[in-house]
């Protein structure tokens, strides 16, 4: 049943929710932690906290599924959430924000500073977008079209994140904030790595809070995949050089130079840690 309020709707199922979204111009309200910062907030909200479909955390053989309205705290408390995701979530803001902020909201806000989105990039997660005409699954990298520009239709909602289970075990996560808590990322790095019988089977890195969109370059990472460790060592400088060109930082409270230098330092450190 939908509770209809002045300036807001509280649906209790995904079907109700999508029906409302299709008919009206409503701002989805997930955790509210980005939305509520604005002083002059007009319009009407579509509250997502009572929709069971958006709160589910489940798995199958190949994938983990996180409902978009799961809060950071709910995921931190879930046995299914992988360590790399928890590493990032545990450093978001502070407890009160983690208790309300959701992954769907974090992604949907469209910022390259979104700490959970960085993990979804590096893990090659896909987003389930639900709309009045059905669902579609979009790789997160394709979902971000530019700064605050998303591949999302007016009738659609981010309903779930699908994260492949493979390659999650060996990871690196680094966040640079202005302090240890309550910090917005000034730079963040995530990497995944796997090797089998001396050959690199997987390598993925992503850089957050550097450009308009989180940087994830599979084409560059493929320079290392399939190589033996000695071969990878030989290719290391070319790999780093490729990222040096690929990373074009924007300037904010910290300079573009700082961002670039630190990104490359963290990339090199990641390779060191992985034995390259």
């Amino acid at each position: 049943m939908v509770t209809i309020l002045a300036n807001g709707f509280v649906p209790e199922s995904l079907a109700e929710c999508l029906e409302l979204k299709a008919k009206r111009s409503l701002t989805p309200y997930a955790g509210g932690t980005d939305l509520m910062i604005e002083e002059d907030r007009g319009g009407q909200y579509l509250f997502l906290h009572k929709i069971p479909e958006l709160k589910r955390i489940r798995e199958d053989d190949d994938n983990l599924y996180f409902g978009a309205a799961c809060t950071f705290t709910e995921l931190l408390e879930s046995a299914l959430a992988p360590a790399i995701l928890k590493a990032a979530l545990s450093r978001i803001a502070a407890p009160a924000i983690r208790n309300t902020g959701t992954i769907g909201g974090n992604i949907g806000n469209g910022s390259a500073k979104a700490d959970s989105a960085l993990i979804f990039f590096v893990t090659d997660s896909a987003l389930k977008l639900s709309g009045s005409k059905g669902e579609r699954l979009v790789p997160i990298q394709d979902f971000y079209l530019g700064r605050k520009k998303l591949d999302l239709q007016p009738d659609e909602l981010i309903s779930e994140v699908r994260m492949p289970k493979k390659w999650l075990s060996k990871y690196d996560y680094q966040k640079i904030g202005a302090r240890k808590s309550l910090a917005i990322s000034r730079l963040s790095f995530a990497g995944l790595f796997a090797e089998e019988n001396g050959a690199i089977t997987h390598c993925a890195v992503a850089f957050g809070a550097v450009s308009d969109v989180i940087i994830r370059r599979k084409d560059l990472d493929s320079l290392l995949i399939g190589k033996t460790i000695p071969d990878a060592k030989a290719a290391k400088s070319a790999y780093i050089k490729a990222y040096e060109e690929a990373i074009v930082p924007i300037r904010g409270r910290v300079s573009a130079e700082y961002r670039k230098e630190t990104c490359l330092n963290l990339l090199k450190d990641f390779l060191n840690k992985m034995g390259i």
């Binding site: 502070a94 202005a178 302090r179 240890k180 808590s181 309550l182 910090a183 917005i184 409270r253």
Partner: peptide
């Protein structure tokens, strides 16, 4: 407060 950074309890 997000741009003028003062120490928190964990710093």
């Amino acid at each position: 407060y997000s741009d003028y950074i003062i120490p928190t309890s964990v710093d």
